[in-house]
Structures are given as C-alpha cells and as structure tokens.
Write a protein that binds this DNA or RNA. Structure first.
Lengths: 195, 195
DNA sequence: GATAACAGACCGACCAGACGGTTTGTTATT
DNA sequence: AATAACAAACCGTCTGGTCGGTCTGTTATC
C-alpha cells in the first residue's frame, strides 16, 4: 500500500531528527550544556551514536539546529502576540515584552532554561552568534520604529531582556510582586499616552 | 637577609597565585571558558600543571577564585562611585549604572569579556551561583532603598544589566549614539526631579 | 509478481586526543 | 631540618568523530 504523505506527517528520518533534537533539549535543560554529548543523546534517544551522527554530522550541526529552532519559536510567539493587538503604537514592543516575559505559547519554564543554556553555549560556538545577532537586529529595529520614543522603547526592551536573562541564568530571585509591577510598568510605557 | 614584608608585597606563593589567576582570565577572555584548562594555564604561566594544582587544588577552586575576584572588583568600583556622589537620592542606582556601563576603574573591555565568560561558566559550576546571587541581592536591595520609586529603580537596574549582558555576550550591536542616549536617560531617572 | 538495484537509516567497534587529577620526586625558602 | 613551591611522568576517563558494514524499504526491470 502506497503511503500517502500528508503535509504534517514526517518521514522516518525526520521523526528521528525531531526526537534527537528533543532529547538534546532535555539534556541541556536538565544537566547543562556541558552534558550535551553524543553518548548522552544516544542514551536518551535509544539510537546509537552512529545513528545520531547520521542525522547531525557534527556537534556544531546539532547545536545549530537547536539554536535555529529556538529563535524561530520565539519569533512565532512574537508574531502571534503582535497580530492580536489592536492599538498601533507600541504594538511590537508590547509583543516583545509579552513574548519574553509573558505567557505566550512560545514561553514557559523549559523554554527559558533552554534559552539560558543556549546563551551560555554561544560562547563555544561563535558562528552561531550570527543567528542570534540577526534576530536581535530585527528586534531592535522593530522596537525603534514602533511609534514610541526610540530611547524609551529601547530601554523597555533592555529591561525586558535583563529581567529574562537574570531569571533564566538563575542569578536573580526578583520578588514576584516586584516582577509583575515591573512588567506592568513596562507595558504602561508602551502606550504613548504617557511620555 | 631577612625580607621585611610590607602590607602590599606578597609572598612567593601569593605572587604565583596572582599570576595564575591573571593567566586564567586572559585565557577565558581570549579563547572562551572551554579553553580554560590546566595545560593552557600551565603554558601561559610557565608553571607546570603540578605547580598550578599546588595552588588551586581543583578546577572548581580556580574558577571560584576568579568569580570571587570578579565580584569583589565590581563592588569596589561601585563603592568608589558611590562615595563620589553628592546627591543623596538615587546615589546607589547611579553608581550601579556607572559601575556597569561607565568608565569606572572596575570596568573596561577585558573586564566585560571576563564577565561574559564567567556568566557562561556559571552553568557548569552551579555552586558558584550562590556567590553571584548574593551580590545580586545586595544590588537589588540597594537599588530599592535608594530614595527612588522602587519599580523605576528596578527597571533602571534591569535595563543596565540587559545592556551590559547583551554587549558582553556580543549578541547586540547597539548604535553608540543610542547607547549613550539610553545611559543618559537612565541617569536622568535617578534624579528624583523626574518621577 | 518476482527480483535485482539502489538509497537512506542505523549500528557498533574503534581511535586519537584532551582533560582533570594523582603520584613521586626535586628544588628553594626559612 | 622542615616545609612550601614546584616539576614531570603518568593514569583513567571521556569525547567527538570515523569507518565498515547491516537492515529495511522503495523503485526499476524483466
């Protein structure tokens, strides 16, 4: 029987790729970047090391795929929030804050920890910086041309980023009340009423 | 001849410790955390691996010493800026911004890159998180009780941190003009005139 | 429909090098 | 003489990556 392939069912190899990626994320989230080895992925995934290397020809390739997926996940969440916003001015900035600190589909604890791990890993895989940097440029451009005072918008973005990084690196334990107050204030500022 | 020891001259061992620490910093700054190995330190310092392990009994110990030095360097710079500030309100916050983004004695390119490396390394040495976290609590407390609106003060701090991290991780290339505009705005906000 | 030809998926053994750390021995300092 | 400061050889482990080969399924040929 000929297997008819719909749009959203994957070939065997593609399934394996997904499973490997998922395992890699789990490892990185649970045990840190240093624990991301082929052996570990092999164990978690049931595949042999050779099998994994069949799909990702090097560790760089594996990490690169993770970073790309990560970035794309964030941008999807961002775009989603952006379309569900009626007010024009500050729309992008609001979406940015929401996608980073709020409860967008993209975010969540394990996404955050993954972000921390990836950020840390950036040091060891310098070429991956380009991917992140490009996304960063897009964000900065979006924020600067959002109908807000560019400086204020940038500050909102930086504070958002600072809060997120501090949290995901687990260096800061900001009081939850303070956190929501901060987020609320940042959101306020995205409404040109103030200024 | 008896060598009289003044307050600021170090014993031979202490000198070696300093040299090892300095070499470790250079390595971490130039080649990243992953390149920080005993062999590398040994090469850069001229000492043998055994000699290094004589002073730092494990890699953890070495990294711990680096983190402690780093934190203490920052706090020195912070304290320095704090005392040279006449206005009472917002003094700590101003010092914080200055010590992080300005030209305090503590800051500088190699200090920044060191900070990035250490931040990244925090993932592999979880116990060191405590050190950083404690310093972080001190900063947050300082900022919240600085005669400013605590939420605003926190946002200033977060934006500062975000800008610094983005820069040291090299993920953001903020336009210099924008950067100084941001810093200026943040500094403005530390003067309770506004509010 | 049987079979040959091919391709992708995967295994498992292996390797060369790196790394953290130990041990043992030597030199300098007091 | 005692102790601190080193040196050098060495060890066990782990890691990324290679390689030859197998197994499975699909396509072409007859």
């Amino acid at each position: 029987m000929k297997r008819q392939r719909g749009a959203s069912d994957l070939s065997k190899g593609e399934i394996a790729r997904e499973r490997i990626l998922a395992a890699a994320e789990t490892i990185i989230v649970d045990k840190g970047v240093a624990a991301l080895t082929f052996d570990e992925v092999s164990e978690q995934t049931g595949l042999s090391k050779g099998g994994i290397l069949h799909h990702f020809s090097s560790k760089d390739a594996l990490v690169r795929a993770m970073v790309e997926r990560f970035v794309s996940l964030f941008e999807t969440g961002l775009a989603g929030l952006e379309t569900h916003d009626e007010a024009a001015a500050g729309r992008y900035t609001r979406a940015y804050v929401g996608a980073t600190l709020g409860n967008a589909t993209s975010t969540g604890p394990q996404y955050d920890r993954l972000g921390a791990a990836i950020t840390a890993a950036l040091h060891n895989f310098p070429d991956l910086l380009l991917i992140v940097r490009q996304q960063n440029i897009r964000c900065q451009t979006g924020v600067e041309n959002d109908g807000l005072d560019p400086v204020l918008a940038t500050i909102i973005r930086l504070a958002t980023e600072g809060l997120w990084l501090a949290e995901v690196f687990d260096v800061m334990r900001l009081d939850p009340k303070m956190k929501s107050a901060v987020v609320a204030r940042l959101m306020e500022w995205t409404h040109p009423a103030k200024s």
